[in-house]
C-alpha cells in the first residue's frame, strides 16, 4: 500500500486530542459564569443571558486577598526572571569569554542544578531561610527560584553568547570599552531573544509552583496566587460557583499570556531542544 496516510485520519486524531486537551479548561471557564442550577443541570451549555451569574467571581474578589496574591505572584515571577537573566547572563558571559583556571570546573558545578531538583534540599532551605529571617517573605521565594533557574539559564545563554561573533566583542575592545561596558552595551542587548526564551522557561514553573510557597511563605498574606487558590479551594470546596470562579481566575491570565507569547515559547522550546 503506497497510499499516504489519509489527511482526514490525521486531522481526526489531532482534532480529537486537541478537544481532549481543551475540554476541561473550557468547561471550567464556561461554567464559572453560570448560576449554580445551570452548572449542574446543563454543564455543557455556554453561559447565556438566562443562566448567567457572576456570584462566584464576587466571592473570589470579595476575598480581597486574591488581589494581594496576584501581586505577590507577579512580584515573585518578575523578580525571579530579572535576577535569573541578569546573573545568568553575567555568569554565562564570564564562562564563555574569559580563560581562568577553574572555568570548566565551574561550568560543570553550575550545570549540576539542571538535573538535580532543588526541592530535595528543602529541609535545609527552610532552616536557612529562617536563619536569614526571611520566612514568609517574597525575597526568600525569589532567591530560591533564582537558584533553581540559574543553571538552565546559564546553559542556554552560554550557547547564545558563543554564537555572537568574536569580532563584535573585539570591535568593542578596539573602541575602548571596558569589559563591563562590552557586556552591558554590546552583549546584553544582543541577548534579548535568548533572554525571552529563558524568561518563558523560568516564568511558567515559578508562577505555577506550589511547593516552595507552601514551605516558605504559607501565611501572612505572602501567598502566591497558586497557593492562594489552593487554600481558597480548600475552604470553599462545596461552593461550586466560587470554586469554578477561582479556577478561572487562575487560568485566564495564564491563557492570555500564553496566547500572546506562544510563538516565542514554542520557538524557544524548539531552539533550546535542538542543541
Amino acid at each position: 500500500m503506497r497510499k499516504p496516510v489519509s489527511a482526514f485520519a490525521v486531522h481526526a486524531v489531532l482534532a480529537l486530542y486537541t478537544a481532549l486537551a481543551l475540554f476541561p479548561i473550557i468547561l471550567v471557564i464556561m461554567n464559572s459564569f453560570k448560576a449554580k442550577r445551570a452548572i449542574f443541570n446543563t454543564p455543557l451549555t455556554p453561559p447565556m443571558p438566562w443562566n448567567f451569574d457572576p456570584i462566584g467571581y464576587s466571592k473570589v474578589f470579595g476575598d480581597s486577598a486574591i488581589a494581594t496574591y496576584y501581586m505577590n505572584s507577579i512580584t515573585v515571577t518578575v523578580g525571579t526572571i530579572f535576577l535569573t537573566l541578569l546573573f545568568g547572563a553575567m555568569a554565562a558571559w564570564a564562562l564563555t569569554e574569559y580563560k581562568f583556571r577553574w572555568n570548566t570546573a565551574l561550568a560543570i558545578f553550575l550545570s549540576i542544578g539542571i538535573m538535580v531538583p532543588i526541592r530535595l534540599g528543602s529541609v535545609s532551605i527552610i532552616q536557612l531561610v529562617s536563619d536569614l529571617n526571611l520566612i514568609n517573605t517574597l525575597t526568600a521565594l525569589i532567591l530560591v527560584y533564582v537558584a533553581q533557574n540559574l543553571p538552565l539559564a546559564v546553559f542556554i545563554l552560554s550557547e547564545f553568547i558563543q554564537q555572537i561573533p568574536r569580532d563584535l566583542r573585539e570591535a568593542g575592545r578596539c573602541d575602548g570599552l571596558s569589559e563591563y561596558n562590552i557586556f552591558f552595551y554590546i552583549i546584553l542587548p544582543l541577548l534579548r531573544p535568548a533572554m525571552a526564551t529563558v524568561a518563558v522557561f523560568t516564568m511558567i514553573p515559578v508562577w505555577n509552583d506550589l511547593w516552595f510557597p507552601l514551605l516558605l511563605a504559607p501565611t501572612g498574606g505572602k501567598q502566591t496566587i497558586t497557593l492562594g487558590v489552593q487554600q481558597f479551594l480548600g475552604q470553599y470546596i462545596t461552593d461550586w460557583n466560587a470554586v469554578l470562579a477561582a479556577l478561572s481566575t487562575a487560568i485566564i491570565p495564564v491563557l492570555v499570556l500564553y496566547v500572546i507569547f506562544s510563538r516565542q515559547l514554542i520557538r524557544g522550546l524548539t531552539s533550546g531542544a535542538v542543541k
Partner: peptide, 14 residues
Amino acid sequence: PAQREIAMVFQSYA
C-alpha cells in the same frame, strides 16, 4: 587595544 591608537576593520565588519 584602545590605548594603541589603532583602528581595526574586521572581515565580518563587526
